[in-house]
Simulated scan of single mutants.
Amino acid sequence: MIVIGAGPVGLLMGGLLRRAGIDVEILEQRGHGSGDSRAIGVHAPVLAALEGSGLTAGLLDQAVRVTRGEARAQGRVLGEVRFDRLPARFPFVATLPQSGTEAVFSEAAPVPQRGVSVGALRPGPEHVEVDTGAGPRQAPLVVLAGGPRSRELVYRSTLAHTYPDRYLMTDADVSDEQAFEQQDARTAVVHLEPAGVLESFPLPQGRRRFVAWDSLGTSQDPSSADPTSRDPAAQRDRMERTLAAHGQPLTGQVSGFGVRRFVAPALRDHRLLVIGDAAHEVSPIGGQGMNLGLLDAATLAPLLTAWVRTGTAPESELRRWERARLRSARRAAQLAALNTRLGRPLTPTADSARRGGVRLMLGPGAGRAFAHAYAMGFDAEA
């Protein structure tokens, strides 16, 4: 069997199959790991799904357990999200850099064959033909987990909805408990300001990830955006000023990114299956994109194992898997779209209405449902 892609989803897929005794190879175009990434949170359904494999313990050895989140505006708390009050096996969000997640999954996975580019995939009833730069290959089953850029290998239309929003991101040192408005190490903070959102998430080793709405990088027409918006020095200056307004110094590198939405019409073509961002891409504002892919892999691996062992495709189970994962992706995309809209700059009147709306959403009754949604409680595997 071949898995295409050595990001966290591909590594998990390869590791789960290998653990089940399946002969599997991982092909990866990049010559090295992903390095910096926007994906840092592992949610409760993923931790529960991976507990039996031992991978959850490896993740939790490195991660910060975020038990609550706060929404703030103009220095005041609008409401809180309490993950630690949810009836879940793991009532928190585990945060760690994606490189740490990949390191844990790499311990169980076969070593990826790096520098292998895939030019075409031709699925058929008996095998899948894989065209690579090193020549053609055949495999009885292929799982595509190569991210957004790989989806053109499968889908005729790969058009994604592109949001006008752009964001700046950095990981910064927080030297003591008094830093960043006296937030403790297990609390995530979302500042909803008139000028746009600033998010802050705890990371291991006394660091936090900050994500800020970027005014100069944002435009309905990308060609009309400020020409200095992508300049690294200008991005750093904007992020530095944003953090300084909250008493937080800038200590790390700054990167910018945009957001898109894509949900595929199907995840299977004969013996070819598509998981992760290749199949569904949601705004990272909300932190569920990587988790969707990890749950794709965790729930697909037993079905592929049964297929290989028996020589017969578990058709009804595969159809149920595909429906459930697409339903979960659509729900996550809707929540991510709401998060993106909530974080945009607003006029004073609209900003006041937003503050009132957030207070209601995070108030008694509704707040528990909101926490349930943000913890991926509406995923089919929750």
Rank of each mutant, 00 (worst) to 15 (best):
G5P: 15
A6N: 12
G7H: 10
G10T: 05
L11P: 11
M13N: 09
R18E: 14
R19T: 11
A39Q: 00
I40T: 13
V42H: 14
H43C: 07
A44R: 10
A44P: 01
L47T: 07
E51A: 13
G52K: 10
G54S: 08
T56C: 02
A57D: 11
Q62P: 06
A63R: 07
G69E: 02
E70D: 07
L78V: 00
L78R: 13
R85K: 09
A88T: 00
F90M: 10
P91L: 05
P91Y: 09
P91M: 03
L96G: 03
E102G: 14
F105L: 00
F105K: 08
A109K: 02
Q113F: 04
G115F: 01
G119H: 15
G124F: 04
E126N: 14
P136Y: 13
A139R: 14
L141T: 15
L144F: 08
P148E: 05
R156Q: 07
T158Q: 07
T158V: 13
R166A: 09
Y167R: 07
D173K: 04
Q182Y: 12
A185M: 08
A185K: 02
V189E: 11
E193K: 09
P194Q: 14
F201T: 09
F201R: 13
F210K: 03
G217R: 07
P222R: 08
S223G: 13
S223K: 15
P227S: 05
T228Y: 02
A233H: 10
A234H: 09
A234S: 11
A234N: 07
Q235M: 12
R241F: 03
L243E: 09
G247F: 02
G256Y: 04
F257S: 07
R260H: 12
V263T: 10
P265M: 01
L273F: 09
V274D: 13
E281R: 06
V282D: 00
I285H: 06
G287T: 04
G289M: 02
L292M: 02
L294V: 05
D296R: 08
A298V: 04
T299W: 13
L303E: 10
V308R: 06
T310G: 07
A313G: 03
S316W: 06
R323V: 11
S328L: 00
A329N: 06
Q334P: 03
A336G: 04
A337G: 13
T340R: 14
T340E: 05
T347I: 02
D351H: 15
R354E: 00
G357S: 07
R359E: 01
R359W: 00
L360T: 14
G363W: 00
A366R: 15
A371T: 08
M376V: 15
